[in-house]
Amino acid sequence: MPSRRRTLLKVIILGDSGVGKTSLMNQYVNKKFSNQYKATIGADFLTKEVQFEDRLFTLQIWDTAGQERFQSLGVAFYRGADCCVLVYDVNSMKSFDNLNNWREEFLIQASPSDPDNFPFVVLGNKIDVDGGNSRVVSEKKARAWCASKGNIPYFETSAKEGINVEEAFQCIAKNALKSGEEEEIYLPDTIDVGNSSQPRSSGCEC
């Protein structure tokens, strides 16, 4: 019997509106940056093949809308995630303060089997802006927060310049893989739609 280890890894990117979630995803998958991104409506995803220890995996990266109003869609998007990427803008304190909300919201909505050990990765984006002069969140502060939440891996990135993006996503893929492998593969009972002789439900058929 062939290996039943899963080859699809689902990654969710969360963070405030405008921190660069779409840009990071596109920089990683397409190696491109554009000033012309629109606000993401709802969610979007891209896939990328990654190789890890001679095996190929498909990384499915979900980019979500930053506006709070879309959070109610979370359950549908977050379900089955193998890793969650939290993004903030190093030039915006508010986006950093909100990381806590995003993390908790994710844990509530996705309800992973082992919330304490669910893999997160934190990215402080836009380090290129104004040569770092407009920066308001220090690396120290960010690392301290990550340490307090169970040593979340932390990267400082620039989607625009392509700094640290590859490294960050390699770490994300590795963590997603680890979490994906530990999980029991759950195959729900299949429904045979071809079998018409099944008794129909006696409920209301309006």
């Binding site: 509106s17 991104y37 629109k38 606000a39 506006q67």
Partner: peptide
């Protein structure tokens, strides 16, 4: 702020 951010990103082309 949200509106401002999105208006700036409307049809950037």
């Amino acid at each position: 702020e949200q509106i401002d951010r999105d208006v700036k990103r409307t049809h950037p082309d």
